[in-house]
């Protein structure tokens, strides 16, 4: 059974370029995740002691915010595909609110650590903590810039049932940020 008989052919949602970027990002973060995991084996006690200074509640709230942001982005894409850009824009705004909540919590976390005199040179755990969560933080900011542009263009009526390629492209990048955090959170905040 081919096209037109109820079975859709496989389709990559979004631009190929963003998917290639996603692969590169996953590779880079994968190397950092495994570097952390294997570096930990050399001094488990130090990693566990340092990890106990992190706020697990902040980490869990941030996970919930990113997941909820991803859900909002999915709903935005669905709304625009159904030619409801106004609803799509509202979902994008909700996703941005989730991203903003994540940013506020991370800034609180980073400033708390800075006030405690913790920096990259404090110990190996904190070096990884700052590098990994900091690198991820900048990806959240980049994804929020993309979402803001998409929000403005969706509100202006640029996207609809037959034109949502750019929206799907931005959505894919946002979901990648969520996927990375789904591994980062248990690795850095929980595993001990």
């Amino acid at each position: 059974m081919g096209k037109g008989h109820g079975i859709e052919s496989p389709r990559l949602a979004g631009d190929l370029a963003v998917w290639l970027i996603i692969l590169a990002e996953l590779l880079a973060f994968g190397i950092l995740f495994l570097s952390y995991a294997f570096a930990r084996t050399f001094d488990v006690a130090l990693f566990n002691a340092s990890q106990s200074t992190l706020d697990l509640t902040f980490g869990a709230i941030n996970t919930a915010l990113l997941i909820t942001g991803s859900w909002c982005v999915v709903r935005a894409v669905h709304a625009v595909r159904q030619d409801a850009p106004a609803a799509g824009a509202r979902w994008l705004l909700a996703a941005l609110a989730c991203g903003s909540g994540f940013v506020v919590i991370k800034v609180l976390e980073f400033s708390d650590k800075a006030q405690a005199g913790i920096d990259l040179s404090t110990n190996t755990f904190y070096m990884f903590y700052i590098l990994l969560t900091g690198f991820h933080f900048f990806h959240v900011l980049a994804a929020m810039v993309f979402l803001t542009i998409l929000l403005v263009k969706t509100r202006a009526g640029h996207y609809g049932q037959h034109n949502h390629h750019a929206l799907e492209t931005g959505a894919a990048f946002w979901h990648m940020v969520d996927l990375l955090w789904i591994v980062l959170f248990p690795l850095i905040y929980v595993m001990r």
Binding site: L12, D178, L179, I182, V183, F185
Partner: peptide, 19 residues
């Protein structure tokens, strides 16, 4: 974490319907 990742990859990223 694996379960969550599967959900994000297959359904949020819509790779269930991708090549």
């Amino acid at each position: 974490s694996l379960f969550k990742g599967l959900g994000v990859v297959l359904d949020f990223m819509d790779l269930r319907h991708a090549p």
